[in-house]
């Protein structure tokens, strides 16, 4: 294994999913940019005046902390659609990445080359867990910078045309640190979702047909059996259902409980995601990845 093999293996994954990884974030970006711009263009004169009044209000300008929070919320708002769609693409990627190469028999070609199975499986895991969301977050960051450029032009117009100076807000916006805090969530997010990704990869490797069903049906079947047993034995609740609910619960309570003594709101999401990482779940994920690797080594050609 050398650097060239690693880089080329990542490039191969990007080539395979190029359309999805290029067009989907682009379409979301265009939609997010076009929608408010269209609204702004179609805005009536009195509405424009009202907005100008809010922006230039001295009291509003003095509330620096409030502005910082608004800015952070706005950035997060721009990232949310990208991350939501990214998750769907990730789930699609993981359920197809090892299945498709067996379905079209190209696994015979890939495995006829001096590339180890550890590298092949590892690159697929990292691509799905980190590269895919990175591409979507890059697109979201581009959208943020587009709006910042738009804001810069607006500031220039207000400053030169109306004598209203909003330059002070740029310093209090903490643009770089706010963006960095969002980017920092990528790693805990990937670690939190790692067992899910590993399970989907296993289903992708194991299934001879319909890998998504193979990923879903066993869980549903176990939950149904568990609920039947719980009802029959009059137990308090199902272990698996409770565990899954606990692991994937991501509500307001979690954020407020975990970050009560944190001054900076920008780290809320990072800390909340970090608190979701579980050692046991990570070990289960590692176990699932090993089975996936073993199946690729021993059962790809059967």
């Amino acid at each position: 294994m050398n650097n060239s093999q690693v880089i080329t293996s990542f490039r191969k994954e990007i080539w395979e999913f190029k359309k999805t990884l290029f067009w989907v974030p682009l379409i979301i970006a265009i939609f997010i940019i076009a929608a408010p711009l269209l609204k702004w263009i179609l805005m009536e004169d009195d509405q424009s005046s009202e907005w100008l009044g809010i922006i230039t209000n001295v009291d509003n300008l003095a509330n620096v902390e409030g502005f910082t929070r608004i800015f952070l919320t706005a950035i997060m708002g721009m990232f949310v659609p990208f991350i939501m769609v990214s998750l769907i693409i990730q789930l699609y990627y993981f359920t197809t990445c090892l299945f498709d190469e067996r379905r079209d028999l190209s696994v015979y070609f890939w495995r006829s080359l001096p590339v180890s199975d550890v590298l092949s499986v590892g690159v697929k895991l990292i691509t799905g867990a980190l590269v895919v969301p990175t591409i979507f977050m890059l697109a979201a960051t581009c959208v943020v910078f587009f709006f910042l450029l738009f804001a810069l032009i607006a500031c220039l117009v207000l400053s030169l045309g109306y004598g209203v100076s909003l330059w002070g807000l740029w310093g209090s916006a903490d643009i770089i640190s706010n963006l960095t805090s969002i980017w920092l969530t990528l790693l805990p997010y990937a670690l939190w979702m790692f067992p899910v990704f590993a399970w989907l990869m296993l289903a992708s490797m194991f299934a001879s047909k319909a890998p998504f069903l193979w990923a879903i049906l066993p869980i549903v079947a176990i939950l149904l059996i568990e609920s039947y047993v719980v009802e029959y034995l009059h137990l308090d609740g199902g272990l698996l259902l409770h565990t899954l609910r606990e692991y994937f619960a991501f509500g307001q309570g979690l954020i407020s409980n975990e970050v009560t003594d944190i001054q900076q709101p920008r780290f809320m999401l990072f800390l909340a995601l970090s608190s979701k990482i579980s050692g046991v779940a990570t070990l289960i994920g590692i176990g699932l990845m090993y089975i996936t690797y073993w199946l690729r080594v021993n059962k790809s050609h059967v």
């Binding site: 080539w15 395979e16 190469e101 079209d104 028999l105 190209s106 696994v107 015979y108 070609f109 006829s112």
Partner: peptide, 13 residues
């Protein structure tokens, strides 16, 4: 070097 079968090159590449 190994050629398994003519059909094994991935279709998307």
């Amino acid at each position: 070097a190994y050629i398994a079968d003519v059909a094994v090159l991935p279709k998307w590449i």
